[in-house]
Amino acid sequence: MIERKTAKLIRKIKKGNQQAFKQLYDLYADYSLRTAYAITNNTSDAADIVQETFIKVYRNIDSYDIEKPFKPWFYRILVNESNRFLKKKSKEAISIESEQLLDFLNQQVEEPIDNRDVTSALKQLDEKHRTALILKYLNGFTEKEIAEIFELNVNTVKSRLYQGRQRLKRMLGGVKDE
């Protein structure tokens, strides 16, 4: 299990083991790069965000509670760093590759939609709805995990996901009559 392996690595990192940090990086780099890219739509920016995220993880690893899951803690740092980066750059861009979200939206709208339409619509969503949708549909996080990342109530996350999906459906051609 990845959490067990992660916990072992973190114990080693806390003792100063540099190789363990490299292994932790190897475990999470691809997923974090995809998430940062989905938020920024820029490979170079995503790489910078991931690098800053891992620097913050390294600097703050001693404050991490080994009894709690690592993934939500890590993604909270990643999302915060992404948001900080976007605010610094003062632009919003996004790309999504999630077939699950496309499938859901295609079932709900009159006309078939494609990835470019979803990307354009996501750009128009506010940050809280867009990020929740990315974490759910691109990264496969549960509502509970997203709530932990944002330090929110699960019902708040469910509401953001619902509202985000509804806004996307309206932007992408309306809802089918049922």
Rank of each mutant, 00 (worst) to 15 (best):
K71M: 12
G173H: 05
Q51H: 12
M171C: 01
K68Q: 10
E67G: 08
R84I: 01
D103S: 02
D177T: 10
F21C: 02
E97V: 03
F141A: 11
R59C: 03
L135I: 07
R11M: 15
D62H: 13
Y31L: 12
Q166T: 14
D126R: 10
L161W: 04
K91T: 08
N106C: 09
L161F: 03
A20M: 07
A29F: 05
E111D: 09
V157M: 10
G16E: 09
I113M: 13
N153R: 11
K8M: 07
K12H: 14
L133G: 03
V118M: 07
A46I: 02
I10E: 04
K91E: 08
E67N: 14
R11P: 00
Q100M: 10
D117M: 15
G16F: 07
P112W: 01
Q100L: 11
L33N: 12
I94C: 15
I66W: 00
G173A: 05
E143C: 11
F21H: 01
R165S: 13
W73E: 05
A46Q: 01
K158L: 06
K68P: 01
A20P: 04
I134S: 12
P72F: 06
V109C: 02
K88T: 14
K14S: 02
S44N: 07
T156S: 09
E127N: 01
K8E: 13
T53P: 08
V109S: 02
L105W: 07
Q100V: 11
V79Y: 05
L101C: 05
V109Y: 00
E143L: 11
Y37S: 04
W73D: 04
E92S: 06
L168E: 12
L125W: 01
T35D: 04
I10G: 04
Q107L: 08
S63N: 11
K71S: 10
A36F: 04
D30A: 12
T53V: 07
V57E: 04
D62F: 06
N42I: 02
I39G: 00
D126P: 06
E143S: 14
A132Q: 01
A20G: 03
Q19Y: 03
R4Q: 13
F150L: 10
L168G: 12
G16N: 06
T142S: 15
I149K: 11
Q100H: 09
N155E: 11
L152K: 04
L78T: 13
E52R: 10
D117N: 13
Q51G: 03
L78R: 12
T43E: 14
K5H: 15
E145W: 07
Q108T: 04
P69L: 00
L135R: 08
L168Q: 11
E67H: 13
I149H: 10
S95D: 10
R11D: 13
I39W: 11
P72T: 06
T35V: 12
D65E: 10
Q124P: 00
